[in-house]
């Protein structure tokens, strides 16, 4: 596997119940590639949280997964409102989600913290009114 493998997904922002489609598809593809199950688990959880965030806050976006020999990168990009206070958003339990989102079992304020927990490296670029790009890396070993 010398050339990186790239998977690209559009995350539909209109339908909350379809969130997770990309993560589940990635999980399946990476299983077929024979990646370690712990890497796949971390990656798909981190990516699902990102997808949910894009649906809740940003009306969708794109997700790219790049697989190389020693790591997997996930790049989540949206044209949403941006994150006003990243430090606050990274705190467990902090959420700006609505009551409707809560009734679906989300909005616990664990999304970004889980993404950090399950990735080995994570960076957030965000600009108010422009959008947010999150990059996560998960090492194979």
């Amino acid at each position: 596997m010398s050339e990186p493998l790239v998977f690209h997904y559009e995350v539909d922002g209109s339908d909350f119940t379809s969130a997770g489609t990309a993560s589940v598809a990635v999980k399946k593809s990476l299983r077929q590639l024979g990646l370690p199950s712990e890497v796949i688990r971390k990656l798909s959880i981190a990516m699902y949280e990102g997808e949910i965030n894009m649906v809740i806050h940003a009306n969708g976006g794109t997700a790219d997964v790049i697989v190389t020999e020693d790591h997997v990168d996930i790049v989540l990009k949206d044209n949403g409102p941006g994150i006003p206070d990243v430090e606050k958003a990274m705190q467990e339990g902090y959420s700006t989600a609505t009551a409707e989102i809560h009734s679906l079992g989300f909005g616990a304020g664990m999304g970004l913290p889980n993404m950090k927990r399950y990735s080995d490296e994570m960076s957030i670029e965000t600009e108010l009114g422009v959008g947010t790009t999150i990059r996560m890396r998960i090492n194979m070993a």
């Binding site: 699902y48 949280e49 079992g105 927990r117 399950y118």
Partner: peptide
């Protein structure tokens, strides 16, 4: 759900009262 996803371990039996698609 985010709490569960962050903390449940592989192969756990997961007890919940949530029953939506997520």
């Amino acid at each position: 759900l985010s709490w569960v996803m962050g903390r449940a371990s592989q192969d756990n039996a997961w007890i919940t009262i949530m029953s939506n698609i997520n």
